[in-house]
């Protein structure tokens, strides 16, 4: 097993979820794709996106 499979298997084992090799291959595919898409969030300038409280049950305030 590679590093990803070992790490993922251990995480799932902690959650009492049994996976097989086909599961792990599928998970790796989705995980890698997701991390690529999420990495854009690593590159945002936090000064441009200040932390604001979001009240999801109300319309947002105008900027």
């Amino acid at each position: 097993m590679g590093d990803f499979e070992n790490w993922a298997s251990a995480t799932f084992r902690q959650a009492h979820i049994v996976v097989d090799d086909d599961d792990l291959a599928f998970v790796q595919l989705i995980y890698v794709s997701s991390m690529t898409r999420l990495s854009v969030l690593d590159r945002i300038n936090l000064d441009d996106f200040p932390s604001r409280a979001i009240d999801l049950r109300r319309a947002p305030d105008l900027p």
Partner: peptide, 26 residues
């Protein structure tokens, strides 16, 4: 299962973007 492996650091960053997008749409 893939979601169980996702780093938590993206959640507050996603929320900052969410707040900005909500305001931009408004």
């Amino acid at each position: 299962l893939a979601g169980m492996l996702a780093p938590a650091r993206y959640v507050p960053r996603a929320d900052r973007v969410r707040a900005a997008v909500r305001a931009a749409l408004a």
